[in-house]
Amino acid sequence: MKFDISRVVELIAGDPQADRAVPPTGFTARLTLFTAGAMAFLAVFAMALSFATGRLADRWSSELARTSTLRISAPADQADAQVRAALAVLETTPGVAAARALTPDEQRALLEPWFGPDLPVEDLPIPQLIEIIEDGTGYDPTGLRARLQAEVPAAVLDDHTRWREPLIAAANRLRSLGWVAIVLIGASTGAMITLAAQAALAANAQVIRVMRLVGARDIYIARAFVRRFTLRALAGAAIGTFAGMFAVWLLPSADVAGGFLTGLGFQGVNWLWPLVIPPLAAVVAFFATRAAALRTLREQS
Protein backbone atom coordinates (compact mmCIF):
# COMPACT_ATOMS: atom_id res chain seq x y z
CA MET A 1 0.00 0.00 0.00
CA LYS A 2 1.35 3.37 -0.98
CA PHE A 3 2.01 5.76 1.90
CA ASP A 4 0.18 8.98 1.27
CA ILE A 5 1.48 11.82 3.44
CA SER A 6 -1.40 14.05 2.36
CA ARG A 7 -3.86 11.66 4.04
CA VAL A 8 -1.92 11.92 7.29
CA VAL A 9 -1.84 15.71 7.05
CA GLU A 10 -5.55 15.68 6.28
CA LEU A 11 -6.17 13.58 9.38
CA ILE A 12 -4.15 15.85 11.63
CA ALA A 13 -5.64 18.99 10.11
CA GLY A 14 -9.07 17.38 10.29
CA ASP A 15 -12.33 19.06 9.49
CA PRO A 16 -12.91 22.00 11.84
CA GLN A 17 -16.60 22.06 10.90
CA ALA A 18 -17.07 18.39 11.78
CA ASP A 19 -15.21 19.03 15.03
CA ARG A 20 -17.52 21.93 15.84
CA ALA A 21 -20.61 19.91 15.06
CA VAL A 22 -19.67 17.24 17.60
CA PRO A 23 -19.21 18.86 21.00
CA PRO A 24 -16.37 17.45 23.11
CA THR A 25 -17.35 15.45 26.17
CA GLY A 26 -15.11 16.41 29.08
CA PHE A 27 -14.82 13.10 30.88
CA THR A 28 -13.88 11.10 27.78
CA ALA A 29 -11.19 13.67 26.96
CA ARG A 30 -9.70 13.38 30.44
CA LEU A 31 -10.03 9.58 30.41
CA THR A 32 -8.23 9.29 27.08
CA LEU A 33 -5.46 11.67 28.09
CA PHE A 34 -4.92 9.92 31.43
CA THR A 35 -5.03 6.41 29.95
CA ALA A 36 -2.64 7.25 27.14
CA GLY A 37 -0.29 9.03 29.54
CA ALA A 38 -0.27 6.24 32.14
CA MET A 39 0.16 3.52 29.54
CA ALA A 40 3.00 5.38 27.83
CA PHE A 41 4.71 5.84 31.20
CA LEU A 42 4.50 2.08 31.82
CA ALA A 43 5.58 1.34 28.26
CA VAL A 44 8.77 3.35 28.79
CA PHE A 45 9.64 1.20 31.80
CA ALA A 46 8.79 -2.01 29.94
CA MET A 47 11.03 -0.84 27.13
CA ALA A 48 13.82 0.04 29.57
CA LEU A 49 13.48 -3.42 31.12
CA SER A 50 13.74 -5.08 27.72
CA PHE A 51 16.83 -3.12 26.78
CA ALA A 52 18.48 -3.74 30.17
CA THR A 53 17.88 -7.49 30.06
CA GLY A 54 18.99 -7.53 26.45
CA ARG A 55 22.26 -5.89 27.38
CA LEU A 56 22.67 -8.33 30.27
CA ALA A 57 22.09 -11.32 28.02
CA ASP A 58 24.51 -9.99 25.43
CA ARG A 59 27.16 -9.32 28.05
CA TRP A 60 26.84 -12.73 29.63
CA SER A 61 26.77 -14.28 26.24
CA SER A 62 29.82 -12.53 24.85
CA GLU A 63 32.07 -11.98 27.86
CA LEU A 64 31.54 -15.25 29.69
CA ALA A 65 31.72 -17.25 26.51
CA ARG A 66 35.34 -16.17 26.07
CA THR A 67 36.53 -17.13 29.55
CA SER A 68 36.65 -20.29 31.56
CA THR A 69 38.17 -21.46 34.82
CA LEU A 70 40.45 -24.31 35.72
CA ARG A 71 40.28 -25.46 39.33
CA ILE A 72 43.29 -27.27 40.85
CA SER A 73 42.32 -29.23 43.96
CA ALA A 74 45.52 -30.89 45.14
CA PRO A 75 47.35 -31.44 48.43
CA ALA A 76 49.43 -28.41 49.41
CA ASP A 77 52.75 -30.03 48.57
CA GLN A 78 51.62 -30.89 45.05
CA ALA A 79 49.63 -27.78 44.26
CA ASP A 80 52.41 -25.71 42.68
CA ALA A 81 53.52 -28.58 40.46
CA GLN A 82 49.97 -29.21 39.31
CA VAL A 83 49.47 -25.52 38.54
CA ARG A 84 52.68 -25.38 36.49
CA ALA A 85 51.68 -28.54 34.62
CA ALA A 86 48.24 -27.14 33.91
CA LEU A 87 49.66 -23.86 32.62
CA ALA A 88 52.02 -25.81 30.41
CA VAL A 89 49.15 -27.76 28.96
CA LEU A 90 47.15 -24.59 28.40
CA GLU A 91 50.04 -22.82 26.69
CA THR A 92 50.10 -25.51 24.07
CA THR A 93 46.35 -25.78 23.64
CA PRO A 94 45.04 -24.31 20.37
CA GLY A 95 42.36 -21.67 20.95
CA VAL A 96 43.68 -20.52 24.33
CA ALA A 97 44.90 -16.95 24.12
CA ALA A 98 46.09 -16.63 27.71
CA ALA A 99 46.07 -18.50 30.97
CA ARG A 100 47.20 -17.38 34.40
CA ALA A 101 46.84 -18.47 38.01
CA LEU A 102 44.87 -16.09 40.17
CA THR A 103 46.94 -14.37 42.85
CA PRO A 104 46.11 -14.87 46.55
CA ASP A 105 44.70 -11.31 46.61
CA GLU A 106 42.36 -12.08 43.71
CA GLN A 107 41.23 -15.32 45.35
CA ARG A 108 40.70 -13.42 48.61
CA ALA A 109 38.58 -10.83 46.78
CA LEU A 110 36.42 -13.60 45.33
CA LEU A 111 35.75 -15.04 48.78
CA GLU A 112 35.35 -11.69 50.51
CA PRO A 113 31.54 -11.50 50.09
CA TRP A 114 31.18 -14.70 52.10
CA PHE A 115 34.11 -14.65 54.54
CA GLY A 116 34.91 -10.97 54.86
CA PRO A 117 38.28 -9.26 54.32
CA ASP A 118 41.72 -10.48 55.50
CA LEU A 119 40.95 -14.12 54.91
CA PRO A 120 44.28 -16.07 55.14
CA VAL A 121 43.80 -17.93 51.89
CA GLU A 122 47.42 -19.10 51.90
CA ASP A 123 46.73 -21.13 55.04
CA LEU A 124 43.45 -22.63 53.87
CA PRO A 125 43.06 -25.75 51.72
CA ILE A 126 41.19 -23.95 48.97
CA PRO A 127 41.68 -24.80 45.30
CA GLN A 128 43.91 -22.69 43.11
CA LEU A 129 42.02 -21.08 40.21
CA ILE A 130 43.45 -20.53 36.73
CA GLU A 131 41.74 -18.07 34.42
CA ILE A 132 41.61 -19.10 30.76
CA ILE A 133 40.95 -16.56 28.03
CA GLU A 134 40.08 -17.89 24.62
CA ASP A 135 41.12 -16.45 21.33
CA GLY A 136 38.61 -15.83 18.53
CA THR A 137 38.41 -19.48 17.48
CA GLY A 138 38.02 -20.97 20.95
CA TYR A 139 39.34 -24.25 22.25
CA ASP A 140 37.95 -27.77 22.21
CA PRO A 141 36.77 -28.39 25.81
CA THR A 142 36.43 -32.14 25.34
CA GLY A 143 39.99 -32.49 24.06
CA LEU A 144 41.37 -30.21 26.78
CA ARG A 145 39.60 -32.20 29.49
CA ALA A 146 41.11 -35.41 28.12
CA ARG A 147 44.62 -33.94 28.17
CA LEU A 148 44.17 -32.51 31.66
CA GLN A 149 42.88 -35.81 32.96
CA ALA A 150 46.05 -37.48 31.72
CA GLU A 151 48.58 -34.82 32.68
CA VAL A 152 47.00 -32.87 35.57
CA PRO A 153 44.58 -35.21 37.34
CA ALA A 154 43.80 -32.60 40.04
CA ALA A 155 42.41 -30.11 37.45
CA VAL A 156 38.73 -29.56 36.83
CA LEU A 157 37.75 -27.44 33.82
CA ASP A 158 34.69 -25.20 34.11
CA ASP A 159 33.82 -23.55 30.78
CA HIS A 160 30.80 -21.75 32.40
CA THR A 161 28.38 -23.41 29.99
CA ARG A 162 26.47 -25.11 32.78
CA TRP A 163 25.34 -21.88 34.49
CA ARG A 164 25.82 -19.39 31.66
CA GLU A 165 23.17 -20.87 29.37
CA PRO A 166 20.28 -20.82 31.89
CA LEU A 167 21.21 -17.25 32.83
CA ILE A 168 21.21 -16.12 29.21
CA ALA A 169 17.94 -17.96 28.63
CA ALA A 170 16.44 -16.24 31.68
CA ALA A 171 17.64 -12.83 30.51
CA ASN A 172 16.29 -13.42 27.02
CA ARG A 173 12.95 -14.51 28.46
CA LEU A 174 12.84 -11.41 30.60
CA ARG A 175 13.53 -9.32 27.51
CA SER A 176 10.68 -11.07 25.67
CA LEU A 177 8.40 -10.44 28.64
CA GLY A 178 9.23 -6.75 28.39
CA TRP A 179 8.08 -6.67 24.77
CA VAL A 180 4.98 -8.71 25.61
CA ALA A 181 4.23 -6.12 28.30
CA ILE A 182 4.51 -3.37 25.68
CA VAL A 183 2.09 -5.22 23.39
CA LEU A 184 -0.34 -5.71 26.30
CA ILE A 185 -0.04 -2.05 27.21
CA GLY A 186 -0.86 -1.15 23.60
CA ALA A 187 -3.86 -3.48 23.61
CA SER A 188 -5.08 -2.06 26.93
CA THR A 189 -4.71 1.46 25.54
CA GLY A 190 -6.79 0.45 22.52
CA ALA A 191 -9.45 -1.10 24.74
CA MET A 192 -9.69 1.94 27.01
CA ILE A 193 -9.85 4.32 24.08
CA THR A 194 -12.54 2.16 22.48
CA LEU A 195 -14.62 2.42 25.65
CA ALA A 196 -14.08 6.18 25.85
CA ALA A 197 -15.01 6.59 22.19
CA GLN A 198 -18.17 4.52 22.66
CA ALA A 199 -19.09 6.67 25.66
CA ALA A 200 -18.53 9.82 23.60
CA LEU A 201 -20.66 8.43 20.76
CA ALA A 202 -23.44 7.50 23.17
CA ALA A 203 -23.31 10.96 24.76
CA ASN A 204 -23.64 12.51 21.30
CA ALA A 205 -26.42 10.26 20.01
CA GLN A 206 -28.74 13.21 19.38
CA VAL A 207 -26.03 15.16 17.55
CA ILE A 208 -25.33 12.12 15.40
CA ARG A 209 -29.05 11.76 14.63
CA VAL A 210 -29.29 15.36 13.47
CA MET A 211 -26.15 15.06 11.34
CA ARG A 212 -27.56 11.97 9.69
CA LEU A 213 -30.87 13.67 9.01
CA VAL A 214 -29.10 16.36 7.04
CA GLY A 215 -27.15 13.82 4.99
CA ALA A 216 -23.90 13.21 6.87
CA ARG A 217 -22.18 9.97 5.92
CA ASP A 218 -20.94 7.69 8.70
CA ILE A 219 -17.32 8.32 7.79
CA TYR A 220 -17.83 12.08 8.16
CA ILE A 221 -19.29 11.66 11.64
CA ALA A 222 -16.63 9.09 12.60
CA ARG A 223 -13.84 11.39 11.41
CA ALA A 224 -14.68 14.01 14.02
CA PHE A 225 -14.35 11.43 16.80
CA VAL A 226 -11.30 9.70 15.29
CA ARG A 227 -9.29 12.89 14.92
CA ARG A 228 -10.17 14.07 18.41
CA PHE A 229 -9.26 10.78 20.10
CA THR A 230 -6.10 10.34 18.02
CA LEU A 231 -4.81 13.76 19.01
CA ARG A 232 -5.74 13.21 22.66
CA ALA A 233 -3.91 9.87 22.71
CA LEU A 234 -0.90 11.47 21.02
CA ALA A 235 -0.80 14.29 23.58
CA GLY A 236 -1.36 11.99 26.56
CA ALA A 237 1.24 9.49 25.38
CA ALA A 238 3.76 12.28 24.75
CA ILE A 239 3.33 13.53 28.32
CA GLY A 240 3.55 9.98 29.72
CA THR A 241 6.57 9.12 27.60
CA PHE A 242 8.59 12.17 28.64
CA ALA A 243 7.60 11.62 32.27
CA GLY A 244 8.70 7.99 31.98
CA MET A 245 12.00 8.93 30.31
CA PHE A 246 12.65 11.47 33.05
CA ALA A 247 11.92 8.84 35.72
CA VAL A 248 14.27 6.34 34.04
CA TRP A 249 16.93 9.04 33.78
CA LEU A 250 16.62 9.62 37.53
CA LEU A 251 17.36 5.96 38.29
CA PRO A 252 20.88 5.32 39.67
CA SER A 253 23.36 4.48 36.93
CA ALA A 254 25.12 1.13 36.74
CA ASP A 255 27.90 0.90 39.32
CA VAL A 256 30.92 -1.33 39.58
CA ALA A 257 28.89 -4.07 41.21
CA GLY A 258 26.79 -4.15 38.04
CA GLY A 259 23.61 -4.93 39.87
CA PHE A 260 20.73 -5.57 37.54
CA LEU A 261 18.37 -2.86 38.81
CA THR A 262 21.03 -0.18 38.72
CA GLY A 263 21.49 -0.99 35.03
CA LEU A 264 17.80 -0.42 34.19
CA GLY A 265 17.60 2.33 31.61
CA PHE A 266 18.58 3.39 28.14
CA GLN A 267 22.03 3.88 26.72
CA GLY A 268 23.13 5.97 23.76
CA VAL A 269 20.80 5.93 20.78
CA ASN A 270 18.42 3.68 22.68
CA TRP A 271 17.15 6.85 24.34
CA LEU A 272 15.41 7.54 21.00
CA TRP A 273 13.31 4.38 21.18
CA PRO A 274 10.71 5.68 23.67
CA LEU A 275 9.94 8.47 21.20
CA VAL A 276 8.09 5.92 19.03
CA ILE A 277 5.54 5.41 21.83
CA PRO A 278 3.42 8.57 21.24
CA PRO A 279 3.00 7.97 17.48
CA LEU A 280 2.23 4.30 18.18
CA ALA A 281 -0.37 5.32 20.77
CA ALA A 282 -1.88 7.67 18.18
CA VAL A 283 -2.02 4.85 15.62
CA VAL A 284 -3.69 2.55 18.18
CA ALA A 285 -6.18 5.31 19.04
CA PHE A 286 -6.87 5.98 15.36
CA PHE A 287 -7.81 2.40 14.56
CA ALA A 288 -9.58 1.75 17.89
CA THR A 289 -11.73 4.87 17.57
CA ARG A 290 -12.44 4.34 13.89
CA ALA A 291 -13.58 0.76 14.47
CA ALA A 292 -15.64 1.74 17.53
CA ALA A 293 -17.22 4.73 15.78
CA LEU A 294 -18.19 2.88 12.62
CA ARG A 295 -19.51 -0.09 14.61
CA THR A 296 -21.54 2.14 16.94
CA LEU A 297 -22.90 4.20 14.04
CA ARG A 298 -23.98 0.97 12.33
CA GLU A 299 -25.72 -0.17 15.51
CA GLN A 300 -27.39 3.19 16.11
CA SER A 301 -29.10 3.24 12.73
Partner: peptide, 20 residues
Protein backbone atom coordinates in the same frame (compact mmCIF):
# COMPACT_ATOMS: atom_id res chain seq x y z
CA UNK B 1 -36.77 21.09 14.70
CA UNK B 2 -33.76 18.93 15.72
CA UNK B 3 -31.04 21.54 16.06
CA UNK B 4 -27.56 21.30 17.50
CA UNK B 5 -27.96 23.60 20.48
CA UNK B 6 -24.23 24.33 20.83
CA UNK B 7 -24.01 25.87 17.35
CA UNK B 8 -25.33 29.31 16.37
CA UNK B 9 -28.27 29.54 14.00
CA UNK B 10 -26.17 30.18 10.90
CA UNK B 11 -24.11 27.03 11.44
CA UNK B 12 -27.23 24.99 12.12
CA UNK B 13 -28.83 26.17 8.91
CA UNK B 14 -25.62 25.56 6.97
CA UNK B 15 -25.16 22.07 8.46
CA UNK B 16 -26.39 20.17 5.35
CA UNK B 17 -23.81 22.06 3.26
CA UNK B 18 -21.13 21.46 5.88
CA UNK B 19 -21.61 17.71 6.00
CA UNK B 20 -21.62 17.63 2.20
Amino acid sequence: CQFLDHLPLTENIALPLTVS
